[in-house]
Amino acid sequence: MIEVENLTKKYGELIAVKNLNFKVEEGKIWGFLGPNGAGKTTTMRILTGYLPATEGKAFVGGFDVFEKPMEVKKITGYLPENLPLYPEMTVYSYLNFVAQIKGVPSKKRKERIEMAIEKSRLEEVRNRLIRNLSRGYKQRVGIAQALIHDPKVLILDEPTMGLDPAQIVEIRQLIKSLKGEHTIILSTHILAEVTQVCDGVVIINEGKLMASGSLEELASSFADKEGVSIKLKKTGEEVINGIREINGVENVVQKNGDIEIEWKKGIDLRDEIVKKILEKNWGLLEMKPLTLSLEELYLKVISGR
């Protein structure tokens, strides 16, 4: 649905985005991750036709962003980082205006506005001036605005920025509920957001693509060790040393009552470990695979492995 090929954007001498390549399939939510100033907003602005690229190509819904900008704009909803709201308008009249300029036919306009109000839960404030809304409601008006013409593609730049924890959860649920009908790219620097909401992730730093793919793909490609975390009735030095003796175990760490065991990628020591535990009667309570958390993955990727 969204395809970016060798995208480069220079502001004079400054290179904001360099040779970016990625692809997002239809109906997926893709996270755009990177530290501040990594080029997330620039890339989104290029995809929405707000900024031209210096080099490279971008396609949204099969249309070339630079050759068919009107077609792309018709099927794209965009929530910029700075909410594009007119404070002197009411929520309803604002959405009506956006519906008009996004080309919603006048017969369908009412229905679409109601839909956007319902989905973004703006019912209580529909006739209030935007000026008087709280930050959380303003953010929702921003999202409603992006949804109003039922776009195939949604591009959300930091949709949860500046919200309190309860509002963040709400907005995330809203975004999740949009999955399937819409292909979504959202940028964030909150890692938890990506694990909770996204199917895949594009990590960029200093304008360069560091990694992209589904979360599982990335986790397994960046991990060089595998392991399990276990919980036993018995604890103490004896247990740790006992596990260390197993052939192939590289590292054993005790972490808040859990014991994390790592071994080289490619072999599987789970059977051996369980055998030993049963043999010694240590009392196995829990066992789960160790995965690279997104946090670790992110730091690994950003620091260049």
């Binding site: 707000y50 009107m70 965009y78 594009p84 956006v98 300029i101 996004k102 080309g103």
Partner: peptide, 13 residues
């Protein structure tokens, strides 16, 4: 100043 030009220029106008 208000950033609303981003809305105008990303709309099919």
């Amino acid at each position: 100043k208000m950033g609303t030009e981003e809305l105008l220029y990303t709309s099919p106008l």
